[in-house]
């Protein structure tokens, strides 16, 4: 059977809380897993007192050595689990929509700002022709 690294939802209504678990793919979401690798609290916490940047934060507890092991023996992370594991460098990041979009925008603007040097290209083309 396929092993999956996935999230199991706990917590109350409007207060989600996830266990990051290794389980057989066909078992129920909240059934007892093979192993609990960690937790993921998706509700952002207010910035910590000592934090100079003052950014909210989400807490993730993870046994990264164990996660590496399970990935190594062929456990398949779900999309969300993949996103979390790729943040600590266990997996290659897969879902980089924002980055890709930004790259596209950059490339577009670069293409727009580029003025095609017409005369030089024509000349070089003619020279190539002569040489040929």
């Amino acid at each position: 059977m396929v092993l999956r690294i996935r999230l199991a939802r706990f917590g109350k209504r409007h207060a989600p809380f996830y266990n990051i678990v290794v389980a057989h793919a066909r078992t129920a979401r909240n059934s007892k897993p093979l192993e609990v690798l960690g937790t993921y609290d998706p509700i952002p916490q207010p910035p910590r007192p000592g934090d100079s940047k003052g950014r909210p934060w989400k807490e993730i507890k993870l046994d990264s050595a164990r996660a590496r092991y399970w990935v190594g023996v062929g456990a398949q992370p779900s999309d969300t689990a993949w996103r979390l594991l790729s943040m600590v460098g266990i997996l290659e990041p897969k879902y980089r929509v924002r980055e890709v979009k930004q790259q596209v925008i950059k490339a577009d603007s670069a293409a727009k700002s580029l003025i095609p040097p017409k005369s030089s290209t024509t000349r070089s083309a003619s020279e190539e022709v002569v040489e040929a």
């Binding site: 960690g38 950014r55 909210p56 934060w57 989400k58 993730i60 507890k61 046994d63 943040m87 924002r98």
Partner: peptide, 14 residues
């Protein structure tokens, strides 16, 4: 650090 918040990973042991 993400776009709107930071993801804080704490190492634990299973």
């Amino acid at each position: 650090s993400g776009r709107r918040w930071d993801f804080v990973f704490q190492d634990v042991s299973v």
